[in-house]
């Protein structure tokens, strides 16, 4: 299962108004580390489907949202709860390290 893409049009419903915890993976085609971390996020998503939604936002296609969330380095993974960013993880990391960073939202 691969993470759903969100857009300018769907960000509000899928992220901001989502009742569940949502992780947004800010990524781009040209970003090698983004490609490396993407299957790891897919694994975390399917192992924790009841606790967290994981979606992807392409920063090339939606620069306004990237700017709004002050992205200056990707992959940038932002956890949203009730529309607010509660946690930011920057850079590709091994699964164990990512799971540890996100532990509070996967429990």
């Amino acid at each position: 299962m691969s993470a759903r893409a969100v857009t300018d049009a769907t960000f509000e419903t899928e992220v901001i108004n989502n009742q569940k915890t949502v992780l947004v993976d800010f990524w781009a085609e040209w970003c090698g580390p983004c490609r490396a971390v993407s299957p790891i996020l897919d694994q975390i998503a399917s192992e924790n489907a009841d606790k967290i939604d994981i979606v992807k936002l392409n920063v090339d296609d939606f620069p306004a949202l990237a700017a709004k969330y002050q992205i200056t380095s990707i992959p940038a993974m932002k956890v949203f709860q009730k529309g607010e960013v509660v946690k930011t993880v920057i850079g590709a990391k091994p699964k164990v390290a990512l799971v540890a960073d996100l532990a509070a939202y996967l429990a």
Partner: peptide, 14 residues
Amino acid sequence: GRGVSWCATCDGFF
């Protein structure tokens, strides 16, 4: 990740 980077090809775009 807030303006300090080690990788121009990764982050230059921003």
